[in-house]
Nucleic acid binder design. Structure first.
Lengths: 248, 248
DNA sequence: CGACCTGTTGAAATATATCAAACATGGTGG
DNA sequence: CCACCATGTTTGATATATTTCAACAGGTCG
């Protein structure tokens, strides 16, 4: 089912590119320019087509990746073919940093994207020489843990509508944090992608989008644009404020 | 609904106690004795009754806790009263370590338990003086992230039976890692507790236990003992190996 | 144009929740 | 010691949210 699997072509990367892509979030955000230069000197940049794999579940975890542009998803494949998404990641996020010998899940680009690839051992030696990086990794890990726990709450206790509402608002604020303010969410994901993230089928996701649209809470623009027109109503759902009837 | 809420009585703690409780897992596992002594000198020990709160969701996050004995659960309460458990924690685990100003969820003892309480700022200053602690925190955070992602997978894609099976095996191996080998799991949690962890109702958890018992996969001993009699069968479910009929 | 993919909507099937009742268990106090 | 109560468990009947199966519509692309 995965259309494109070959590895991206590689190229050298400048510190500028790293700085520019990951100014406000991610590993590089708080690092000194000289340190960034050091990171960049070891990294290789590559561009990804939509749906292209960054790494596969089960591959030896020899590299870490910084997503410098675009969006990606992390997915786990079950033996019987079911697939679940562990999360979506945006520009600046670190991918594939694991203590395990193999990646416990795969990563693939959602839309067009680009990554900086760094050898795991070269990150390790960088850490050894510059403890500030370790501190930064701990912060990132804690952020990721917190968002995973939120996701857990959603899958464990939220209805389909609540999950979609929570996702839309989370994605909107993640996009805002990366500089693009405004109510239009750029979401290069199919209904199926969202279903895998939210523990729903693609049909259920579609029905929820339709319901939100009918209530005037969202508007769709093209294939990837989702305009949030009533963040308050969505927020009420996303916070889990009532179990029963959805008031007008 | 929470029966006991007052804070535990505090007392001094020895490094020995920390070492002993958390020898193989947790924050203290790989630390030098002198460092442990340092940690211990700042910590206060307290005993907890079953169901006693360690900290509440929304409390200022001024302390971190090391669970030195017993089991605890972390729960998030939704505005409308629904409750979800983020996870269970066992002896040696670190609780309440968050970058946020307030605890994002509450922690309470499942059975009788004890914790070592440490001021957050004193942990911070310890980190500043001994970077090895930071490394250890990163490892712990990554472990916690990995187990949370497993849990996410379970809630997103697993059936009720698969969730319970996966939980039982995870709990068994967590117990084994803490020294108590063997097939009998000591589980001081009600069906309701498990339901909150697994995103199910207590009745569904009970029905799954009954089904496993009828198939001879488990046996119950008293109110907390669960004997795993067919780990292979449970493992097959827990890995998500088939979607449809459960073969005899 | 036709094949293909994504999205939408409908009708039926189903896993789990909800509601309800009985049953066990352990503690407590008469 | 036993009656009593609170708490947790089990099981049943019913309801319901979501899945599953299916058909169709709108793009896109070769």
């Amino acid at each position: 089912m995965q259309s494109v699997r070959e590895r991206p072509a590689l190229g050298r990367v400048s510190a500028d590119c790293l700085v520019c892509a990951a100014r406000l979030v991610g590993l590089c955000a708080p690092l000194d320019p000289p340190l960034l230069e050091l990171l960049a000197s070891d990294a290789q940049r590559s561009s990804l087509l939509p749906r292209q794999a960054i790494f596969l579940q089960g591959d030896p975890a020899r590299h870490v990746f910084i997503l410098s542009a675009g969006a990606a998803r992390l997915t786990r494949l079950l033996p019987d073919g079911r697939r679940a998404a562990v999360g979506f990641r945006l520009a600046g996020d670190l991918l594939g940093f694991t203590p395990l010998p193999e990646y416990p899940f795969g990563a693939e680009a959602l839309g067009p994207a680009s990554v900086c690839r760094l050898e795991r051992h070269s990150l390790d030696s960088l850490i050894a020489r510059h403890p500030v990086i370790e501190r930064r990794l701990l912060d990132l890990c804690m952020d990721e843990l917190a968002s995973t726990q939120e996701q857990l709450l959603a899958l464990g206790r939220f209805t389909a509508e609540e999950r979609v509402a929570a996702f839309l608002l989370t994605a909107l604020s993640a996009q805002a944090r990366r500089g693009r303010a405004g109510a239009i969410l750029d979401l290069p994901a199919t209904r199926g992608d969202l279903g895998e993230l939210l523990g729903l089928t693609l049909e259920t996701v579609s029905r929820v989008f339709s319901a939100f649209r009918r209530r005037g809470w969202i508007r769709l623009h093209g294939s990837t644009g989702v305009e949030i027109r009533d963040a308050a109503a969505l927020g009420c759902l996303a916070r889990g404020e009532e179990r029963a009837g959805t008031a007008a």
